[in-house]
Every structure is written in C-alpha cells, then in structure tokens.
Design a protein around this nucleic acid. Sequence first.
DNA 1: TTGTATGCGTTATCAC
DNA 2: GTGATAACGCATACAA
Lengths: 338, 338
Amino acid sequence: MNDHSKPTLDDVARAAGVSTATVSRCLNSPDQVIAATRLRVMQAVETLGYTPDFGGRALASRRTNTVGAIIPTMDNAIFARGLQSFQETLSRFGKTLLVASSNYDPAREREQMEALAGRGADGLLLIGSARPDMSTDYLRRRGIPFVRAWNLGSGDGHFVGFDNRAAAAMLAERVIAYGHRRLSMIAGVTQMNDRAADRMAGVRDAARAAGIADADLPVIEAAYTFEDGARAMGELMARTPRPSVVMCGNDVLAVGAMQRARELGLAMPADVSITGFDDIDLARVVTPELTTVRVPHRRMGEAAAEMLIRLITKQPVETHVKIPTAIVERGTLGPPRD
Amino acid sequence: MNDHSKPTLDDVARAAGVSTATVSRCLNSPDQVIAATRLRVMQAVETLGYTPDFGGRALASRRTNTVGAIIPTMDNAIFARGLQSFQETLSRFGKTLLVASSNYDPAREREQMEALAGRGADGLLLIGSARPDMSTDYLRRRGIPFVRAWNLGSGDGHFVGFDNRAAAAMLAERVIAYGHRRLSMIAGVTQMNDRAADRMAGVRDAARAAGIADADLPVIEAAYTFEDGARAMGELMARTPRPSVVMCGNDVLAVGAMQRARELGLAMPADVSITGFDDIDLARVVTPELTTVRVPHRRMGEAAAEMLIRLITKQPVETHVKIPTAIVERGTLGPPRD
DNA sequence: TTGTATGCGTTATCAC
DNA sequence: GTGATAACGCATACAA
C-alpha cells in the first residue's frame, strides 16, 4: 500500500498475517477472536490508519445504521436545537445522523430523500407534513420508515410534534382575555409550511370565536428574518385602525417587530402588545422580554428519535406523539391602552 | 422485486429489457444511449422508484462526490451561516455535503474524521487549527485533502479565515482610543479553540501596547450562551476598580453581558461599554445596537468550498486565504464616564 | 449503440 | 479460532 491510497481489509490482513475474515471479525465481534491475534490485528489497523469503507460494509451487510433528517434550513435556531437532541438520542442507539436541507423546496426535499435513500438511510426524519404525496409514496415504496416532526399530522403515518393550531389559539384567547379586539398577525410563510399555516389558523379560530371577523384581522406573511418582521410591523402600524396587538408566527419575527415598534416610538405593551412563538433564547434577551409559546424542542427531538428507532426495529410504536406546549407570559403582552 | 425491498439496477434492466450496463449508462452518461432505449429505461426507473445505491456506486467508481465538514456544534448561528454558503457552493460543483459535529471535543472530532473518511469523503472542512497532530496526520496518510477555516493557521496546510488576533487587537485599540484604561474581557472558552484564544491574545496585544499590564486586564472565559455571558458580566462588574469596558469574544456573550448590565442598572455606553465579535443578526436587535467586528461568514464558506474543490481536483491553490474583517461601530461603545 | 464480464471492500457462510 | 469464498449493487473496459 502506498502512502496516498487508503488501506483496505486486505492490507491489514497481510500486515497482521491473518485472513480478511479474521480482521473483519476483530472489528465487528472481537470476542470471537483469540486475544493474541486480535492484538496483532489491532496493531496493524492502528499503524496503517485503517478505517472500514462504509460502501463496502453497507453492501455486504445490507445495513448502514444511518438515519437521515431533512430540514428546511440549517440557518435556524429552532431546528438546530431539536436536531441536536435527535442526534444525541440516535447516537445512544449506535446510529449515525445524516443531515440534509431542503431550503423549503419540496422538489429539493424529494432529491434529498433519494440521496439519503441511496446512501442507505434506515429511516428518515421529515419536518411537518406539507409535501406532495409523491414524496411520501416514494419512501413507502422503498420501505423506508419515516417520522414527521414539529407538527401533528392528521392522516396515516407517524408523527411527533406540537399542536401548533391549538397552541396559537390558546395564546390568542389569552390576548383577547386582556381586552384586545384589534388583533393582527405577522405569520411565517404558510406556503408548504404547515406549522406556519396552523399557527395562523389557530389565531383565526380564537378570533372568530370572539366575534372578530377574518376581515378585521390583518395578517401579513413574512420570511424568517428580523428584517421581514420589522417590515411587516411597519405596514401593520400604518393601518387604520391601528392594531393593539401583533401576534407573530415565531420569535424571530416578533423580535423584528419589536425593533420596529421601538423605532416608531411605540411603547410595549402600552401602545402595542407583541407575542412570539417557540421561546428561543432570544425571547429573554429583548426588552421587555417576549411573551411567547414554549415549545420543548429537545424533548421532541428525543421522542422523534425513539419513534424512528422503534419503527426501524419493527417494535410496536405510537403513531401520534403530542408534545405539550405552554404559554410563557413575559413583558410584551398587556391590556390595550383604550 | 417485492414491494418492500429496494429495486436494484438488475430489476430496472429486467423491466426495461436491457442490460444493467445500459441502465447504468442512462444514469451516468445519457448521451451514450439512444433516445428510444433511454426512454424505456427511464420509464422503468420511475415506476420502480429506483435510486442508485450509493455504496455500490462508490465501490465501483471509486469516488463519491461527497465532502464532509466537522463543526464544533450545529447549535450556533455562526457556523450555520458559513456552512450554508459552503454547501451552496459545493452543490454548484455537483458535490454533496455531509455534516458532522464534534461538540468541541478533539476525540469526537477524530471519530467523525474516520466516519467521514469511511463514507468516502473526497475532502474535509475543519474549523480552526487547535487539534492534536495525530488527527491531521490521519487525513494526510489517507490522502484526504482538508481545509481549515474560521481562522488563519501558521503552519503547513490550507486555510481560509480571518485574522482573529489582529481584528481583536484593532477593536481594542479603538476602545483604548476612546480613552478607556480599565479594560476587561469575557472570552470564549480557549481550550481547543484557537479562535477564542486568538481574540483574547489580540486584546492583550493592544492593551500591553498601551501600557496596560495583563494583571490589570481581567479575563473570564465563558461558554457560548447568553447565561454564561451574563454571569461573567456580573463577576466583572463586582470588581474594584470596576472595568469601564467589557470586550466579549462573540456577540452572544456580549448580548448576555448587556442583559446583565441592564439588570444592574448600568447605562451603555455611559456606565460601561461593551463590544462583541462576529456581527450576527442579533447585534442589530439589541438596544443600544452592539459595536462589534463584522466577519463575512458567507464569503468565507464560499472561499473554503472553492479551495477544497481545487485541492480535490488537484488544481493549483493558495494555502492561506485571508478574509477581511471590519469594525462596525454602533451604540455600545463610547468614552468612559470619568 | 448495447451486452458481457470483472472487480471495488466488506460481511457472512461454510469448511477446516 | 481461523481461512476460503461467495455474495452485495454498481461502473466500466472490452467485445460484439
């Protein structure tokens, strides 16, 4: 073996003076090999810098101990946290996580499904359930189990997530209980994003129940940045009558809105109340601190991993695991001035 | 083929009435196949839901078009952004990115190196250069090219990053020019993190040049959270004499420090000045806005990808690419009160 | 243009 | 306890 090409089982076997089978056994079931030979083999492995080739191994053993996750974007604190615990749980079970991102594009998500399937993923984690049937059909046809997280789906399949709609409705009810009537909302982009759509629907549910017509509840959809939140806030505050509260689809939008409110000289919550969703670290950093919905991402990541593993190992498993959410009241929600 | 096992090249070939070689060609060099057969083959591919097996493909072709990146943690806006552009650039060149995280642990990083090497990564992206030689030796021995990013290293190898030390020194000079003499610092954890260590060294460089002894420059190391920043701020503010400025190793720590300053009733910058590092979105959200160092992460990710690809394809390539940084003065830095 | 045959690095099934 | 050897799914040199 020359210095610039990777050593193979064969190289190790030759160096240790044993057969490839023995080397393989040393790596996979060490106790089936006598200590003396094992030592010699491990020695050779070390000095040669041998690492088993995943492709060959997968080919021969027909399993990869790999699971994939396709998330909309890596550039987002929310998925990061949940994913982190997903992967920690996975590695406790000896599985490796492969992460891919779809950029909120169903076509791209489908490509990533195929890429991960091709890489031999034993199972997949998907975010939400807003996607073409074709995509999930593909996974079913290949017999690749998958779990959808971050939201609860209604149909067949396995889900672990929050009831985004109910949580948003509950927060809106709280807002209304403070006496607000002129509600407004800065929603996340609902296109192909059921979390954003559900949160919007939840707010509308509560508003309607309180006798507020959809027409009297202005909603602006905004992408996931401070700037977009600020821009939407500007538009909302320019309306007549001016909303007394702005409910935001996530904390990032809410903080952007707060920023604009401050620039406009509006006091919170006296002049305008603002609510968020997710309770990321950010929510406790702004002044006043943000009233929002706590979403236990780590717990969800863990539950998703466990569900997926049960699915892969064909153990009995629940189909819908609901992770509870909670309203956390801080400083940005108060009674309206009038 | 039954419904619950994945189709192979052979299944497709049989379904389309051609040989496996032809199917393979349809997928890899379509123009070598006549349109009629190609159509038939693609048809079969579609209906069977065939996706090439990565393992088999890698084994047979001896290349993977995959590059790996090992980052300290996914739960961090800074790496997320740079990584995003790294991967975008990569995919423009038809390469797939595999991401692994080391949790700031060199041993874990080494494991991930082996995992990625075993998965056939054509090249690797590493963060910074504080790691055991053994780790880089391993990569060299296997002939896997790698680029170290986020900092400029001094030794052999390929780097793309910032001069963290010089940038920190420049900011400290600016601070001193404002008239500050009682400097202090909340540094990131410097253990196995050359970015944090360099930023600390830079501040000390400038302080010493201004006649401030190390002993008169209290430094607290803190992990990467708001809470740790706030805690360190509390300790610093309890000292006598109280520092007139707190330079932070990153924006997150700075924002944590700001939060504590506010709780202590300290006005910024009148009572205490605070500086950050990185210029993440957060810096423009807090009040007053944070004075910090802008670090063009996207540009760096892109440069790193290009460098790695040149390395992999054995094109000529620079060894040290320096990405410029800039001080952005906002509201948290001003002259000391006294 | 298409088919045949071989080998990639590993595991697993046999013998020994 | 260890060694041959036959798969695994695919790409490719070579033949047709």
